[in-house]
Simulated scan of single mutants.
Amino acid sequence: MSIGVALSATEVDNQIDATVHLAREAAAAGLRSAWFGQRFGVDSPALAGIVGREVPGLQVGTSAIPIFGRHPLLVSSQAQTTQAATHGRYHLGLALGTKHLTEGGFGIPFERPVARLREFLVALRQLTETGTADFHGELITATTPLPAHVPGAEPGVPLLVAAMGPRALRVSGELADGILPYLAGPRVLAEHIVPAVTAAAEAAGRPAPRIVALVNGVVTDDVEGVREKVTEQMAIYEQIPSYTRVIELSGGRRASDVAVIGDERTVAAEVQRYRDAGATEVVFAGTDVAGDADRRRTWALLGELAG
């Protein structure tokens, strides 16, 4: 099973330089992939392209770009450029986003997100596989009066979706290559998420989907102190219905209840639980919450497990 980390360099003089440094450290520890979130700051596909060029041993991915406020033509250009820059090591993650950020940031009504996701994926798949599109949907139009292929980009950039709800999982199984569930513990993965997306893929005649489970976790001796920090940092997710649902179905009440925090034996056992639940890949996030020493300790364990 592939194991990676989500990288987020904060409180630094130069975020790009600092992220490349972290990526080199992650690769040296034996980790297989580095993933980058998308907010209103650094551009995630661009950062993935830079890191992929600087650290050739790593797969790189975006987790994940919200589809509202973006168009398949532009996202395809970003993805193909990064795919060419990394010689086929880029994985594009998409997300529905949230009502608060969509309407507050872009001034766009957060309406019919799953229908938009379906159309976005259909148009984007045409573009990344053929470099052309002639799609006329109810919500999205994407056509190519000029070629949209990036020479050097291998056809078919892997498309993943941060899907966890039943309708989004169905669309992702039918049209994407896999999913990026976050804050979804092994129980909800095994009982709800993996069966739903797998059944949708089978019904559509598609291969078994990738299940890239994003997990907040850290190896530490200060379990209670770290959990307190994680509780504070992750409280924002408890205001988003899609996350509260999977936290509850995972058996938790707070977002930090599904975080993996403990010594090497504890964390290794939890990684195995994710694998048993159907995760094909595990990506650890928030490994820096307890400081550099525990981050390096966490990465050393994950590198051993990946090997």
Rank of each mutant, 00 (worst) to 15 (best):
M1L: 15
V5A: 14
A6T: 05
N14H: 14
T19F: 08
V20H: 02
V20L: 10
L22C: 10
A26H: 06
G30S: 12
L31V: 11
A34I: 06
R39H: 03
F40P: 00
P45I: 02
A46S: 12
L47C: 13
A48I: 04
V51F: 07
V51P: 01
G52N: 12
P56Y: 12
G57M: 05
V60K: 02
T62W: 03
T62R: 05
I65F: 09
G69S: 11
A79W: 03
Q80I: 08
Q83F: 04
Q83N: 13
T86D: 07
Y90V: 01
L92S: 05
T98W: 07
K99H: 13
H100W: 14
F106T: 07
V122G: 04
V122W: 02
D134C: 10
H136W: 01
A142V: 08
T143Y: 09
T144A: 08
P147A: 09
A148Y: 10
G152N: 09
P155V: 13
P158T: 03
M164S: 14
L169S: 14
R170V: 00
G173Q: 09
L175E: 03
L175Q: 11
I179L: 07
L180P: 02
Y182C: 09
Y182V: 14
G185A: 11
R187S: 09
L189T: 15
P195D: 05
E202T: 04
A208E: 13
P209Y: 07
A213W: 03
V215D: 00
V215Q: 00
V215R: 00
V218R: 01
T220S: 05
D221W: 01
D221N: 06
V223K: 11
G225A: 14
K229R: 15
E232N: 00
A235E: 07
E238K: 06
E238I: 05
Q239R: 11
S242G: 10
T244W: 02
R245M: 09
E248V: 09
R253V: 09
V260D: 01
D263Q: 10
R265S: 15
E270G: 04
E270D: 10
V271E: 00
Q272M: 05
Y274W: 14
R275W: 15
T280E: 13
V282K: 02
A285W: 04
A285G: 06
G286A: 00
T287P: 00
V289N: 01
A290W: 00
A290H: 02
G291Y: 06
G291H: 06
R296Q: 07
R297V: 04
A300P: 12
A300F: 04
E304W: 08
G307R: 14
G307P: 10
